[in-house]
Design a protein around this nucleic acid. Structure first.
Lengths: 347, 347
DNA sequence: AACATGGCTGGGAACGTTTCCAAAAAGAGA
DNA sequence: TCTCTTTTTGGAAACGTTCCCAGCCATGTT
């Protein structure tokens, strides 16, 4: 690879002049400019990023940690991040959870890997870290941002969505459609944001006179397979219900798959609603009614805040994004439901 | 950030000694070792990656170009790449298509961005590049690998799957199940791998006496929305058919969504098969029969080949991976199909 | 003619490592 | 005690940039 010295030699100029042409800063006579440009072209010179990083102390790289890239929740977020960073001339380095340890250990290792790599800033998307882990990251010094989870000790750098409101809206929507016998597939109890949304969901039902203790509630791992098995268990239990709330879309999609297989018609016999409004909800069969979480706004504002603190910018940062319901075919009014919930039809 | 000089000073040793402790190469007396280790600990010293890169000429970074991160096709591949690289102590830098230009222009820019960044090697996943674009990449020098597409000028560095066999197997499977009136939703005609699979599919049908000219064939953009609209168009056309072949799973999932909405029972009234066997096929409603492409093996071997050429390793590299059919509920034998294809049921 | 002004230019220093090489220290054998 | 070998140590050089400073040359001013 040609260096700037080669360029200077070929063009017959000094290092300083060559550097001025490359960076575009400082004055250079037109004739020299042309000569150096020609040399750059001839040698296919590309400035070494490592040298620049070493000198400037800034790698122009942002690290992103994501526990696992399955499902469709993280993909749009990653896409947004990359687009924004590219537009700012920055690069995205991604680390997923890897290795043998548990999720928490994986997160710690993955983040350490990113820090070691000299990232200017970090975007973390994990909810398995503890406050003490955050404290252990001496890196913290304002150069990181957490999406979709909130740490008390880092509140200003956390960008999350209102899961309490989300859970409540899910409940409200079902109540408004006349449902009172509602089954629930929660996510892992170890994930705070899941707990918040499910509790808010149940609270809202309770506030409207539903005896939540009698509801069928189970817990799965946010995967389609989990949703499928939960749906099967629910049907096998013959617990009466007219609607099913899944704490994320992935599980709802899995549940829909089971219901189709078992011949249970959604939403005629059973309404299903999800949570997140991921791309997979749009073309499920039937299309899934789901709580639209403003992850787009959340991501965008998180990026803005991070870039502000890393590069002294003044990008706008707002908080408190609207949560809405995306109404699709998987939800029907209980009155419309022609048949009782548990009635099976032979496929 | 503490530098190795700070460590040396605090420990009261020379730079060389400090460096030896950090890298673990060269002999150091036990007493000194302990002293330097203590200093490293005290200062929370982390070697600068930029300085190492500058000196060694190797960034330990692998760039990955992916046109767009939507759907579930690329996600498992990315996950595999990251896991492998991490295990090898390397880092993954990802670039997606971005900017205003067309797909080809975006790919060229994205790849240039990665090269400029000093990646040791590149993994490219795009099928919109032309031979001339590849030729223009002077980087080519063996340090890159192409997945899921083959360039004549770069055959040794391309890792792809047998789309001709894939297309044929899809056809064979439908024929074996008694289908002869088959509709086809192809992908973009601009993508060579799509053309190969669809042509092979049609060829196989033709070889078995099917008049392919009379088949209903359309072209979409590999998206669920495309599959949905194609399914609607097919139904509206009332063209007789007992099965639908979609050139990727995403479109098949979209089609299933439409069929559910329109009250067309799959597979009883119409069988649907997809292509790729992405995760989204496993829990669709109904579960999707699809051509299982060995993208896992393809990716793994591509990575191995790249690391071999970048770091002089001897990882095993093989070619020619088995294509299989993943049989699921969306396919039924034509004999079993109770009703003619186009019969609508009021939802 | 002497002098100030400003545009251009060249090269040294620094960024934080690692890799040498030479020198010092420590053993080992006679 | 002396010499020979081996281990341990310190520091210069290099990697490829950019930044800064000093010097050069052509103009314009007095």
């Amino acid at each position: 690879m040609a260096t700037i010295k080669d360029v200077a030699r070929l063009a017959g100029v000094g290092l300083g002049t060559a550097s001025r042409v490359v960076s575009g800063k400082g004055s250079v006579s037109p004739a020299t400019l042309a000569r150096v440009r020609a040399a750059i072209e001839a040698l296919d010179f590309r400035p070494s990023h490592a040298a620049r990083t070493l000198l400037s102390g800034s790698s122009q790289m942002i690290g992103v940690y994501i526990p696992v890239l399955s499902g469709t929740f993280y993909t749009p977020i990653l896409q947004i991040i990359d687009n924004e960073l590219r537009a700012a001339g920055l690069h995205m380095v991604v680390a997923f959870g890897a290795g043998l340890g548990g999720a928490r250990q994986q997160a710690i290792e993955g983040i350490a890997f990113l820090i070691e790599r000299g990232c200017d800033g970090l975007i973390l998307m994990t909810n398995v870290l503890q406050e003490e882990d955050i404290a252990a990251l001496r890196f913290q010094h304002k150069r990181m941002v957490v999406l979709n989870h909130s740490f008390d000790s880092l509140a200003g750098q956390c960008f999350t969505v209102d899961h309490m409101l989300g859970g409540r809206m899910a409940a409200r929507t079902l109540l408004d459609h006349g449902h009172r016998e509602i089954a629930v597939v929660a996510g892992p109890a170890s994930l705070p944001d899941n707990v918040v949304r499910v509790n808010a969901f149940l609270d809202e039902l309770r506030a409207n006179g539903v005896d939540t203790a009698s509801l069928w509630v189970t817990e799965r791992d946010f995967s389609p397979a989990g949703g499928w098995s939960a749906a099967k268990e629910l049907m096998d239990s013959k617990h009466p219900c007219s609607a099913l709330f899944c704490a994320n879309d992935e599980m709802a999609v899995g549940a829909l798959s089971y219901f189709q297989e078992a011949g249970i018609r959604v939403p005629h016999e059973l309404s299903v609603i999800g949570y997140d409004d991921t791309p997979s909800a749009e073309f499920s069969a039937p299309r899934l009614t789901t709580v639209h979480m403003p992850w787009r706004e959340m991501t965008q504002n998180g990026i803005n805040a991070l870039l502000n603190s890393c590069y002294d910018l003044q990008r706008p940062v707002t908080r408190g994004y609207p949560v809405t319901m995306t109404l699709r075919a998987s939800l029907a009014s209980h009155a419309e439901a022609a048949k009782p919930a548990r009635r099976r039809k032979p496929a």
